[in-house]
Structures are given as structure tokens and as C-alpha cells.
Computed example of a mutant assay.
Amino acid sequence: MSNEKFNNSEILENLSHIKTITNYKTEYCKQTSIYFIIWGLIWIMGYSIPLLFANSITAGVFWLILGIAGWVITLTTYFKQKKMIPMPLFLRTQLQYTWLGLGIILGIFIFLICVGLLPYTLNNLPFYVVLLVSIMYLLLGIVLAKEIFIMGFWLSVLGVTTFLLFPSLMNIIFAFIGGGSLLLTGVILKEKDKEMSNVNSLNDLIHPKVRLGIMSLLMIYEKCDFSFLKASLSVTDGNLGSHLKKLEDAGYVLITKTFVDKKPKTIVSITDLGEHAYKEYLSVIEAILKNK
């Protein structure tokens, strides 16, 4: 019986965190989309330069200007977002490990080039850039969203295929297919926020853990006495009473006080309105999980 109570409690705990965690991830995907759009445009312009100017010095200067402009816009946007919506601790910790992993991989890349195990030429440089960016997106995708992971996988396949089979078309492929893919990912992440906005539709009257537990038990048993609810949810009389009062005020439950063997007994039953609200709540949860 204790195991059953633990499992019920664990399920309710997980459900009560869905709104919070999904909100954080959705908001961060929305914030991230602007970076994909910025760097998608920079990729298209940067990799198009060698098509217009054969001089490698001119191309290098343009890349330097674009890179500086891109980082200025990126950092400005980042600090503005950080002030408006601080990143939650669990996500910040995950991203710290992601950036650490990327730093280690970048260090290995530089070491291999310095010792001559990776050839360093101007022809190879665009491929190395694409490869490093694809690794970064793979790592970020593990933390944030599958769309970013897919983008990283796609860029790595595109980079290797182009380098091996179409080296003469590298710049034009990276410019329009690679840059276009980044832009598309930015748009998809922006749309993801709209698709998952139903997380805000979760019924706040039902969502708290204890009230969700009350409604779940009433959907199973239709009627429960106060003692049964208290034992099943492991709460105090006062805590349970305050939650029942809110559900009663909303018209979701009906509370009947009676006597059994000359002892007072409180019976709680679910109303038609409460049953409808609970089913709607589950529908929203299902929609959120499908869009994860």
C-alpha cells in the first residue's frame, strides 16, 4: 500500500512540474530562434562573398566584419533577454556543461591543426567551421529541442558530403543550403512557441499537486470521504480543507456533511462541471506532451 501511495505521489509531482518545465523550455526556444535567424543571414552573406570576390583577403575582411557585427548583435540580444527573463538554474547548469563540451572539442580541433594531423588550408576552413557549428547544435539540441539537434545532424551530413563530393561548390552550398537551414530552424523554433502556447491554458485551479490529486481520486471513485482523501494525499486537515474550499467555490466539487454512527463525516463528490474541467485539463496535458 505504501508503494502505491509513493507512486501516486510521484505521478502527481511529475504532472505538477510539466507546466513549469515546459514553459521554461518553450520560452528558451523562442529566445534562441533569433540567433538562428541572425547567423543564418550571416552565413548566406559570408559564404556568398567568395562567389563575388576571388581575392581571399577581401573575403577574409568581409567575414571579419560580419563576424564582429554578428557577435555584437548576439551579445546585445542575449543580455537584453537575460534582464527580461532570467534563465532557470537547471537549464543554466545544463548549458554550462554544453559550452564546456564545445570548448573541449574546439581545443582538440586547434591542437590537431597545430600538430599537423588536420590540414590547414583556406579550402578546408569553411568545412571546419561547418563541422564545429554542427557539433555545437548537436550539443545544444540535447538540452533544448530536437529541432536544434536535427539541424546539427543535417549540417554535419551536409558539410561532410559537400567536402568529399562537391568541393568546388562548397561556398554556394554552405551559403544557400546551410544558411537557409539555419533561417528555417529559427522560424520553426519561433512557431514552436505558438504551438506550445497551450501550456498557459492549463487550469490553475486544478494544476496544484493536492488539488490535482483530489480531482484524480474523485474521477476514479466519484465520492470520497475526507479521511480517505487525507490519507491518500498525505496532507493535513487544514491543507486539505483549504484546497477543497477552492474547488468547491469553483463548482468543481460538492461537499456534504453527514453523520455515520453518530460521528460526523464529510463526503466529497465531483460535479459535472468538475468532471468537464478535469477532462479539459488532461487534454491540454496530452497536447503539451505531443509537442515536446
Results as ranks from 00 to 15, higher is better:
2 S>C: 02
3 N>S: 14
5 K>D: 09
5 K>T: 02
5 K>V: 08
6 F>M: 15
7 N>K: 12
8 N>Y: 09
10 E>N: 10
10 E>P: 00
11 I>H: 11
14 N>L: 13
15 L>N: 08
17 H>K: 14
18 I>T: 06
21 I>C: 07
23 N>W: 05
24 Y>C: 07
26 T>N: 05
26 T>K: 04
30 K>N: 12
31 Q>R: 13
33 S>Q: 07
37 I>S: 01
37 I>Q: 01
39 W>D: 00
41 L>I: 15
45 M>L: 15
55 N>L: 04
62 F>C: 11
65 I>M: 08
72 V>H: 01
74 T>M: 08
75 L>D: 11
75 L>V: 10
77 T>P: 02
78 Y>G: 11
81 Q>N: 15
82 K>F: 05
82 K>D: 14
83 K>Y: 07
85 I>T: 13
85 I>K: 11
87 M>L: 15
89 L>M: 14
90 F>Y: 15
93 T>M: 13
95 L>R: 12
96 Q>P: 00
97 Y>M: 12
101 G>R: 08
104 I>G: 01
105 I>A: 15
106 L>P: 01
106 L>I: 14
106 L>N: 06
108 I>W: 01
108 I>H: 01
110 I>A: 03
110 I>W: 02
111 F>G: 00
124 N>L: 15
125 L>T: 09
126 P>A: 05
128 Y>H: 04
130 V>N: 13
135 I>T: 08
135 I>Q: 05
138 L>F: 12
138 L>S: 10
140 L>N: 09
141 G>I: 06
141 G>Q: 05
145 A>R: 10
156 S>F: 15
160 V>S: 02
160 V>D: 02
160 V>M: 06
162 T>C: 05
165 L>Y: 09
166 F>N: 06
168 S>A: 11
170 M>Q: 13
174 F>W: 01
174 F>L: 06
175 A>V: 09
176 F>M: 05
176 F>V: 03
179 G>R: 04
179 G>E: 00
180 G>D: 00
181 S>M: 12
185 T>S: 11
187 V>L: 12
188 I>P: 01
189 L>Q: 00
192 K>G: 11
194 K>V: 11
195 E>P: 00
196 M>S: 10
197 S>H: 05
199 V>Q: 03
199 V>C: 03
200 N>W: 02
202 L>S: 03
203 N>H: 05
207 H>L: 10
207 H>Y: 07
208 P>R: 04
208 P>I: 10
208 P>H: 01
210 V>Y: 03
211 R>W: 03
215 M>D: 00
218 L>V: 01
218 L>T: 01
219 M>C: 10
219 M>E: 11
220 I>C: 08
221 Y>V: 02
222 E>V: 10
224 C>S: 09
227 S>W: 00
228 F>R: 11
228 F>V: 13
229 L>D: 02
230 K>L: 11
234 S>N: 14
235 V>D: 07
237 D>S: 11
239 N>A: 12
241 G>M: 06
245 K>S: 05
245 K>H: 08
248 E>L: 03
251 G>L: 02
252 Y>C: 04
258 T>V: 13
261 D>P: 08
266 T>P: 04
272 D>G: 04
277 A>E: 09
281 Y>T: 06
282 L>D: 01
283 S>N: 13
285 I>S: 00
292 K>E: 13
